[in-house]
């Protein structure tokens, strides 16, 4: 691959991710609205939200680290998108791989944590403490899944993983080969997103207690952008690992949206988990399912 086309891909991949991510946000909000018998927001609402937040007159910053936190949060995901192969584009997926991606995805969280910490609001710090605890919770099943997939396909290169599934057809997909790991992965993915019923560490409903407490204006806008990327990344990663990756854009997008839509619809039915309960849940069921899946896989 020549450098020029690679550069084009590197620019395009985050852009596509952003647009798709906006649509995903819209979809999630629509689903929530439908479940609550509401109409839901209009099509461009996510974009309008971002624009509105950026355009606010009062923009309060608590210092450079506060700003840089947002920069890291957004920038980290932009980098992550270039490591996720999509139909027709692989970016630098061959130079990183699954483990690198998993760790690059932690950089935005760290950025956010730094930004919140600088705000000197104890409620924000409590939110970060919860968020990191939650990360410890959902990462355990997540890494079991990563291990299983990488071991199964004999590589941690996402391109190889996707290609192997596509070559073997649906029977060769991760989800058919390792259903238990796929199930565990779904749990972990959902925990990672911080949506109902695991949203306590984001605490979107309680402004005063949570990481977002000092976020407003551009900071909030940046986090909104990050959320788009986050949804996209999680969905696409799952599709790549278990659902054969993207043969073409149509099936790829359909699978990605489905990955989000199905569990979100189910999860809305559950009440919110406390942090400790989240940890307990994640370390119990998905971890056990994942380990069982590994046991099947390795014998």
């Amino acid at each position: 691959m020549n450098v020029a086309s690679l550069l084009v891909e590197l620019v395009l991949m985050p852009l596509v991710a952003f647009v798709v991510g906006l649509a995903m946000v819209l979809m999630m909000r629509r689903i929530a609205a439908r479940l609550q018998r509401r109409v839901g927001p209009p099509f461009f609402q996510p974009l309008f939200d971002i624009v509105k937040l950026y355009g606010k007159h009062t923009q309060t910053s608590h210092g450079l680290v506060h700003d840089l936190g947002i920069v890291m949060a957004v920038g980290g995901y932009i980098a992550a998108e270039t490591m996720l192969p999509v139909p027709g584009m692989t970016g630098i997926a061959d130079k990183g791989g699954l483990v690198v991606l998993a760790y690059v995805m932690m950089v935005p969280s760290l950025g956010l944590a730094l930004g919140v910490g600088q705000c000197a609001n104890p409620n924000g710090s409590i939110g970060i403490s919860r968020a990191l605890t939650a990360m410890l919770a959902y990462d355990v099943p997540f890494i079991i899944v990563i291990f299983g997939v990488a071991f199964h396909f004999g590589s941690s290169n996402l391109i190889t993983i996707a290609a192997a599934q596509q070559a073997a057809g649906i029977a060769g997909w991760g989800v058919s080969q390792m259903p238990l790991l796929a199930l565990a992965g779904l749990f972990a993915l959902h925990g990672m997103l911080g949506k109902q019923p695991f949203e306590i560490y984001v605490a979107p409903a309680e402004i005063a207690t949570g990481p977002m407490v000092e976020m407003s204006g551009k900071h909030m806008g940046g986090l909104f952008v990050m959320q788009c990327f986050q949804l996209y990344t999680a969905a696409v990663l799952y599709v790549t690992l278990f659902l054969g990756g993207g043969e073409n854009w149509l099936s790829f997008l359909a699978k990605s949206f489905a990955v989000l839509a199905v569990p979100v619809s189910l999860a809305y039915l559950f009440p919110r988990y406390r942090t400790e309960d989240l940890v307990r849940l994640m370390w119990k069921w998905p971890t056990m399912i994942g380990l069982l899946g590994l046991a099947f896989l390795m014998h």
Binding site: L10, I70, V74, G75, G76, I78, A79, A80, V104, V225
Partner: peptide, 13 residues
């Protein structure tokens, strides 16, 4: 790529 991402993020911010 990470630093490019940070750059874009900074530009956006």
């Amino acid at each position: 790529v990470m630093f490019a991402g940070f750059g874009v993020g900074a530009l956006l911010f």
